[in-house]
Amino acid sequence: MYIKQFVVGISLLVFLVASIGFASCSELIDVERHVPSDFSESEMAEITLEITGESPFMLGIVETIPQGFTFPETDSEISDAEYFKVDRDNGKISFSVTDVTEVTYNVIPSDDSENSFEGYWVDMLYQTQELNEGKERWVAVIDPNSASNGQSSTGGSSEDSDSGVESSVPGFSLFLSAASLFACVLFTRKSSSGGMKNDQE
């Protein structure tokens, strides 16, 4: 019985992983974060994201502010960027940037805050054959003052890219899905016939 559950579980897992898919990336754009050298407790501080790239470009950017930092109360105090959204619960701010070389946002530090901003950007105009991309094309925002500067991105949640599975075959994900589906159906059929046999016995 456990074996049956295991097989079904594995099939579903494979189906799920295959649905996520993987892709490679190569970009000619950079996003660099500039933070003040000192933060004063409860005093609003401006974070600048400097974007270099050839027009036309369109980026998605997400920044996660360090624990202890908060966003100002109103959106107008947070940023004057044309398109942004804030997730206060998770301390995140996202931007949609079109041919703009700089966006800024404000944060309010607390006394024991650390400068451990984390951010990623994605080139929205990049074309790829992949159908089900994960976060392989999420690129880390460069922070010249951060200890983690220069580290390559593993994605906002790194599960996908850390899995070590790679496929550059378009449709491979679908094939994997189909294979897992087939395994599941096959197993279901086997399981059904087994049940009948048991009943007859």
Binding site: K85, K92, S94, S96, S157
Partner: peptide
């Protein structure tokens, strides 16, 4: 498109990267 991109980046969206990327391309 910008709303869709912001939601996608916050992982608060049903759209995939392919969707928002294609939308950005069509717009641009």
């Amino acid at each position: 498109v910008s709303d869709a991109i912001c939601d996608y980046m916050l992982e608060d969206s049903t759209y995939s990267l392919d969707d928002v990327g294609d939308a950005a391309y069509v717009l641009t």
